[in-house]
Amino acid sequence: MNFRTAQIRLVSSHPEVYEPCDDSFALVDALLADRTNLVQHQPTLCMEVGCGSGYVITSLALILGKESVGAHFIATDINPHAVRVTQETLEAHGVHAELISTDIALGLEQRLAGSVDVMVVNPPYVPTPEDEVGCEGIVSAWAGGENGRVVIDRILPIADNLLSEKGWLYMVTLAANNPIQICRTMREKGYASRIVLQRSTEEESLHIIKFWRDSDI
């Protein structure tokens, strides 16, 4: 097996798990476009929060591939069906990630602090009624509450805690999430940012933002 990214025909599925869609493809395309930098970055620990079908973490493991056999991958999801599907997707591609059913990084925050070199997040970013946030099953894959920001705003400080000094964060956002304001929030924590990919689909305008610590900020 020698794939560049996860193959749709090998991605496992379940009725309660979000299937790879435009947002997943945009995130993986952004990682592919940054491939040279990622390989040079030589990450030791890589993590995905909200792994869903496993399309993104599998692709990241394939992108880093043999050139960094040293990288270790961890993925979490609040939906227990999703971590199982991710496990099947990883196995179908011959790569490994450690999976944990948890809310964002609950249980990992103490010991993994300052250790994650690459974090990827495709958060539930769709503006929805507040009471849909954190619902069980597939709704947890998209329900983002007011402006789609409720879960994003919980993830940002956790990402800041987990990222290493050289850590990078790639996150999917929607125009409705106010990505510029997200960048400003992260700037206050000492992060520079760049929109690495922008894509408009029939339904949404997606931005993939990359964050990294910048001592000049």
Binding site: I78, P80, R84, Q87, I100, S101, T102, L106, G107
Partner: peptide
Amino acid sequence: RFPVNKGIPNMLL
């Protein structure tokens, strides 16, 4: 107890 099934720990509270 946080159960581990099929190699996956469940840390949900």
